[in-house]
Amino acid sequence: MSACTPRDEFLGRLRTGAAGGTGPIAPPTPRARFVRARTGPDGFMAAWRALGGTAERVPTDELRGAVAAFAAGRDGPLLAAAGLDVDADLRWPDCGSQAAAGAAVGVVRAVAAAAQTGTALLRADDNRGRAASLLPPACVLVIDAGTIVDTLGDYLRGTGDLPSQLVAVTGPSRSADIESTLVIGVHGPGDVHAILTG
């Protein structure tokens, strides 16, 4: 492997500085408090819609219908992550990335959501990978209403093991890089639909 500075030498330079790691320091870590608090499924849906996403809440046994209705009339196959009880043209991960890239809709499960910011949490291990929620232009996120917490911080503090990648998705892919003007749907999905079940 290429020559790099040994860790001890690298960190040693930081020890000689006036810093030099003194005892345990416990900085304050206040929780954010919000002017308009959003909690629960309704709070999540309001926040999600404000970001430009769409959302609905259905009884668990109506998930299939809700997904089919969202996908109806779209130009391309529907891709669903393994283990989701929905009708799909393609199954992730068996179909592979190139096929996933050609899907019109990807359906994945979010392990939790944060109501305040309208954030859905996707674990790489849960959907057995990452591409299904990333490559298709539209994404359906299936969220069990019982898993909704207040904030991303609450989720992070409460989660024990971490997957190789945890992505907190807060609305559709966007950019304001040209003239500081918002456009939706750059590389990730621009059309995001949250289905809350239960």
């Binding site: 910011t117 954030t119 790489a124 291990d125 991303l152 992070l156 971490l162 997957p163 190789s164 990648q165 945890l166 992505v167 907190a168 998705v169 807060t170 609305g171 559709p172 892919s173 966007r174 990730g188």
Partner: peptide, 13 residues
């Protein structure tokens, strides 16, 4: 929050 907050903890498992 930004649209994506990626928390990456190691390579693929």
């Amino acid at each position: 929050l930004t649209t994506y907050t990626n928390i990456i903890t190691g390579p693929r498992r």
